[in-house]
Design a protein around this nucleic acid. Structure first.
Lengths: 125, 125
DNA sequence: ATATCTGTTATATTTATATTATAACAGTTT
DNA sequence: AAACTGTTATAATATAAATATAACAGATAT
């Protein structure tokens, strides 16, 4: 698995790890029941504290993406299509919120945004 | 000018002020050469430190939205708002394209995206 | 000229969050 | 038993945001 972290992009390290692993799961680079790197080994590879990796894993477990068993390790949870869709809907929601903020600040009307939306969603036929 | 700040929405106060003033400029509530409230008076109104207001003003000046003169005050800069709006529309377009890609890949219908759009854009009062 | 606005700068402190180091503990596997 | 796993607790550090306070400097009206 290929995780690149950056100290300077505003996103906390634990969140960068979380996203990288989600991505690996979505792309099927990590398959169901695959074991994740141990908190200590990944921490070692990334030259960070294992507590930071643990935090990422804890979040992933809360989200239902992995299962962790003390003494054994962390494993990719059986894929749940609904979960994946939820995740993608969340991504879309984040983008729409950004659009909302920009439009509000820049005095761009809802109609103008809708128009762009229409153009992009309809031009692919 | 009507600025409402919140301590608990994740956005730093200086950024909330920044956005509120940008919005006032875009909506023409604040016109070219209009004087902004002094850092101290706005800080007083909002019950925050004048340094926080100063930071917001500094950012606005860096962005070319206002001009500040020591001893006189801060003033809305002459600006080509249409040009900025074009930039912002492009940003929005990029986001919509990302949304389009995600929705296609994840089998999320246009209707579902529209629904999210509605929810977020209607949260306003 | 001086009082009173304006912004500027410097210092120190507080708060919250992220991250770290370290140590001890607990379950699993070989 | 040794060597892996994860867990927990504590204390320390780093950073950004925001604060309080004080002193300084330019603009302006009276």
């Amino acid at each position: 698995m290929n995780i690149i972290i950056s100290n300077s992009d505003g996103m906390p390290i634990f969140e960068q790890i979380e996203n990288a692993i989600k991505q690996a799961i979505f792309s099927n680079e990590l398959k169901e029941e695959d074991m994740l790197p141990s908190v200590r080994s990944l921490a070692n590879d990334l030259k960070i504290s294992f507590l930071t990796v643990k935090r990422a894993y804890d979040e992933l477990e809360r989200g239902g993406f992995i299962k962790t068993v003390q003494g054994k390790g962390s494993f990719v949870a059986p894929k749940n299509l609904e979960l994946i869709k939820e995740e993608k809907l969340k991504e879309i929601q984040d983008y729409i919120e950004k659009i909302y903020t920009i439009s509000k600040i820049s005095n761009i009307s809802e109609e103008e945004v809708k128009e762009l939306f229409k153009i992009i969603f309809e031009e692919e036929f």
